[in-house]
Design a protein around this nucleic acid. Structure first.
Lengths: 350, 350
DNA sequence: CTGAAAGCGCTTACAG
DNA sequence: CTGAAAGCGCTTACAG
C-alpha cells in the first residue's frame, strides 16, 4: 500500500508537509500543493484509516445499534437504518452496523475499543439496558425512541400520544362511536416498548373525552396469528366501525382478513394505521396512516450526534428531547360509518 | 482511556508481556498471566481497535455493500444483510454497512483506506461496475448474486434456472397448460439483474419442453402500478390457470388484486412465488414459493470470505461459484386447474 | 513557508 | 519465561 511517505518522496517534500498540504491545516505554497496533489493522484494514495484514527482519536465511524427481535416487524427497522446511514455518509461518516442480540455487550465492545465516534440506538425501550453503558462511554449517543430516563442523551421520537389523539379525533369527526385499537404484541410492552402504551393511553383518554367506546388489544407480529386476532376482534365487536392499527404486521395482514370477511374499506370499515409512506407503498397498503417518519428521525438523530461529536466542549450544549408531530396521510380508508356491517357479506371460512 | 501500558504497570510487567499474556501467542507463567488478567479486569481494559489494526493490518471488520435502488424491493435486501451480519459476528468480525448510491466509489474508499479486511457485495449485476474495483483491491471479496465474469471472486447465488424449471414442472404436474410469469421491473433487467432472465429463460425453455403456454411480463416494484399490471395480465390471459412470481412486490400486492377480482387461491388460480419463508411470514403471504434462502446465502458468503481473509496464502485456494438448490415450500396455493375462471366472480371495479 | 521529531496504542521479531 | 525496542501510518506541536 502507498503511504504518505511515498507521496512525500514523490513530491520531494517532508511527510509533514505532505500531510498539511492534504489537510489544508496550514498555508502551503501553491507549487508544493500541486506537487503533492499530483503525487497523490499518480500513486493513488488514500490515508490509512486505522493510522489516522490512532493519531487523531477520530474514526469517522458511527455505530448503529439495531435490534431484530423475534416479535417485532423487521422491515420497519430498515427505514430507520437507511435514514441513519444516508445522513451519516452525507456528513462524512461511515456506519458500523451492530445487530447482535446482546446489544449492551455489543455497545460496550465498540465504544471501549473506540471503533466509533458516536452511537445511534434504535428501538429504545423504557428501561433500556444499553443506556447506562452509553452514558458511561466517552462517545456521545443519540436515541431513536423515548426511554424513561433521557438524561445525558439526545432523544428523538414520534409524538405517539398525539398520534393516538389524532386517530381518535379523526374517526370521531367522521361520526364513529366505537373503535378497535390493535397494538404491538404484549411482549413488546413487557420489554418496555413505551410507544405502545403512549399511543394507547392517549387514545383511550381522548376516546373518553369524545364519548367513544375504544376496545384495545395486542396483536401478534406474524401470520397467521395476527390474522386470527383481527378476525376475533371483528367478531367480538360487531358494532365497531373503525380500526386503529399501531402494529405493522396487523396492517400487512389486514387486506387478506378483509378479503376473507368480504369487507370493503371504507364502506364497511374505516381504518387508520401508523407506519411510513415508504412502508405503505412497499407493502401495497392503501390505508390512511399516521406517518412514522423513520427517515426523518434517523436523520435528526445523526445530525445531532455529529454536532455533538464535532463540538469542542462536549456536553456543554444541553441535551435535547425532540418529538416529531405526527401527520395523518389520507389514503381514503376512512369515511362516515356505513350500514354494511350486518354480516351478510361475510365469506369467512367457517 | 486505559491502555496496555496501564495494564502492564498495574501488573508489574512490560507492555510486551502484557500483550502476550492477552493474546496467548507465547508461553507466560501462570502467575504473570493472572496478574495481567486481574489488571485488565480492574482497569477495564479493551484494546484500541485503530492501534491494533495499524499494528496487525487486520481490522476485524467486513464491508457490506448493499444497494437500495428505487425500483427494487428494499425489505428483501434486509434478509441478506442480517445473514451476513450475524455470521460475521459469530466469526469475530464487525460490519461496516455501506448503502451509498455510488457503490463503486464507496467500495474504493473503504478498501483503499483499509477500513475492512474483506467485502461482501449484495445484489450483484451481470456487468457490475464494482467488480473491477474489488478485483484490484488487496482485500478479498465475496458476492451474493452471479455476475457475467466470476474470475477472482467467490460467488454465491440461488440456482434461478432450476427455480424456473421447478415452477413450471410443478404446475405442469398438476395439469396446468397456460401460465403467466411476472418478473422484476424491466429496469432491473436493464441494470443487469441476471437472476431475472436466468429464471425466465429457463422457465420458457421448460415450458416449451412440457408443451405449456407461458406468458412473461415485467412487473413494477410498487403499488399501485404493480397491482394494475397484475390485473391487466389476468385480463389479457383469461385462460391462464397459474401465476408465477419472480417479484416480491407483486407477491405482496397479489392478495389485494385477488380480492378485487373475487378470486380464490388455488380454486380459481394457482400461484407460486419466489421469496424466503421469513418474507412470507412477515408479509402474510400464503402462496407457495421457491425459497430464496437469503440467510443461507449471506452466511455462505461470509464463511468463505473469512476463510480467505484468514488463509495465509491468499488466492492460493481456487475461487468458488456455488449455487443453492431451490426448494419449493408448499403453502397450498397450487392445485389442479379449476373451472371457476369464468369471470362470474369478478368484482373488479370497472 | 517547510522539516525533523514525537506520539497515538498496539504487536512482534530480537535478545537474553 | 520476560523485556527493550522497532515499527505500523498517520498528525501535529516544536523549531527554524
Amino acid at each position: 500500500m502507498v503511504t504518505i511517505g511515498d507521496v512525500a518522496r514523490a513530491a520531494g517534500v517532508s511527510r509533514s508537509t505532505a500531510s498539511y498540504a492534504l489537510s489544508g491545516k496550514r498555508t502551503i505554497s501553491m507549487e508544493v500543493r500541486e506537487r503533492v496533489n499530483d503525487a497523490v493522484r499518480e500513486l493513488g494514495y488514500t490515508p490509512n484509516a486505522g493510522a489516522r484514527a490512532l493519531a487523531t482519536s477520530q474514526t469517522m465511524v458511527i455505530g448503529l445499534l439495531a435490534q431484530f427481535l423475534e416479535d417485532e416487524f423487521a422491515p420497519a427497522m430498515l427505514q430507520y437504518m437507511l435514514g441513519v446511514s444516508d445522513t451519516a455518509r452525507e456528513l462524512g461518516y461511515d456506519i458500523l452496523l451492530v445487530t447482535e442480540a446482546d446489544g449492551a455487550r455489543a455497545l460496550r465492545r465498540i465504544t471501549d475499543s473506540q471503533m466509533v465516534d458516536g452511537v445511534v440506538l434504535l428501538n429504545v425501550a423504557q428501561d433500556d439496558v444499553r443506556l447506562p453503558i452509553l452514558r458511561a462511554a466517552p462517545q456521545p449517543g443519540a436515541l431513536v425512541g423515548l426511554p424513561g430516563d433521557c438524561s445525558g442523551l439526545d432523544v428523538f421520537d414520534l409524538d405517539f400520544e398525539e398520534a393516538g389523539r389524532i386517530m381518535v379525533n379523526h374517526m370521531h369527526r367522521l361520526g364513529h362511536r366505537e373503535l378497535i385499537l390493535v397494538s404491538q404484541p404484549e411482549h413488546v410492552v413487557e420489554r418496555g416498548g413505551a410507544y405502545v402504551w403512549r399511543l394507547q393511553d392517549a387514545a383511550l383518554q381522548q376516546a373518553r373525552v369524545r364519548g367513544i367506546r375504544l376496545h384495545t388489544a395486542f396483536g401478534e407480529s406474524r401470520q397467521p396469528a395476527v390474522g386470527r386476532t383481527l378476525h376475533a376482534l371483528l367478531d367480538s365487536h360487531p358494532s365497531a366501525t373503525g380500526l386503529l392499527l399501531n402494529n405493522e404486521a396487523a396492517a400487512a395482514a389486514l387486506p387478506t382478513v378483509l378479503h376473507e370477511r368480504g369487507l370493503t374499506v371504507p364502506a364497511d370499515l374505516s381504518v387508520i394505521g401508523r407506519y411510513s409512506d415508504e412502508f405503505a407503498r412497499t407493502f401495497s397498503l392503501s390505508f390512511s396512516s399516521i406517518e412514522s417518519a423513520p427517515d426523518r428521525l434517523g436523520r435528526m438523530a445523526v445530525r445531532q450526534l455529529v454536532r455533538r461529536i464535532e463540538s469542542s466542549d462536549t456536553a456543554a450544549e444541553p441535551y435535547v428531547v425532540r418529538f416529531i408531530s405526527p401527520e395523518l396521510v389520507d389514503r381514503g380508508s376512512t369515511a362516515a360509518p356505513g350500514s354494511r356491517r350486518d354480516g351478510s357479506h361475510s365469506r369467512r371460512p367457517q
